[in-house]
Amino acid sequence: MRFIQILLIVILLQSCTAQDKKINGVSFVAHRDSITQKNINPLLNINANYAAIMPFAMVRHLEHPVVNFDAERQWFGETILGGKQYINTLKNNSIDAMLKPQIWVRKGEFTGFLKMKSDEDWLTFEKTYSKFILTFAKVAQDTKTPIFCIGTELEQFVKARPEYWFNLIKDIREIYKGKLTYAANWNEFEKTPFWDQLDYIGVDAYFPVSDSKTPTVAECLKGWVLHKTTLKSFSEKFNKPILFTEFGYRSIDYAAKAPWTVDRVAENVNLEAQVNTTKALFEAFWKEDWFAGGFVWKWFINHDKVGGVDNNRFTPQNKPAETLIKEHYKVN
Rank of each mutant, 00 (worst) to 15 (best):
S235E: 10
Y86G: 05
K213R: 06
S15N: 07
F189M: 10
G307Y: 05
K107Q: 14
T229H: 13
D142G: 05
N302A: 11
D310L: 05
A52N: 07
F244P: 08
P42S: 07
T229E: 12
P208C: 15
F300N: 12
P162D: 14
L271Q: 08
H64A: 12
I301F: 13
A205R: 12
N268V: 10
R173Y: 05
P65D: 08
T261A: 14
P146L: 03
V306E: 07
K232M: 00
H303W: 15
F291Y: 14
T111E: 03
N68W: 09
V309I: 07
I169E: 01
V275D: 03
P193C: 00
Q37D: 03
N318G: 02
K177P: 10
N93F: 09
V306N: 10
P241F: 09
M98Q: 02
Q14C: 15
N88E: 15
G77M: 13
T216Q: 01
L99H: 05
K330W: 02
V309K: 10
L243E: 04
N47R: 13
N187F: 00
G83T: 06
V67Q: 00
K279I: 05
W104E: 08
D289R: 11
V59W: 08
S251G: 15
D253Y: 10
F295P: 03
L243R: 11
Y329N: 14
I46N: 11
V275R: 01
H31K: 14
F136C: 00
H303Y: 04
E155W: 09
I9G: 15
F244N: 10
M98N: 00
A258E: 15
L12H: 09
G151A: 00
D33K: 09
F113Y: 10
F207R: 02
S130M: 04
A52D: 14
L243T: 02
T143F: 07
V139E: 02
K191P: 07
F285K: 08
I172L: 01
L243K: 15
N93P: 01
T278M: 04
D121K: 11
F314R: 05
L62K: 04
K170D: 09
N93H: 13
E72N: 10
I175Q: 00
H328K: 06
K305E: 11
P101W: 10
V139W: 06
H61I: 08
I169N: 03
R60F: 11
V209E: 05
S34I: 11
Y249C: 04
E219Y: 12
G308E: 15
K237F: 13
E63D: 08
T145W: 04
G77F: 12
L13W: 14
E219M: 13
Q102F: 03
K91H: 10
K279L: 14
V105E: 11
D142M: 11
F125L: 07
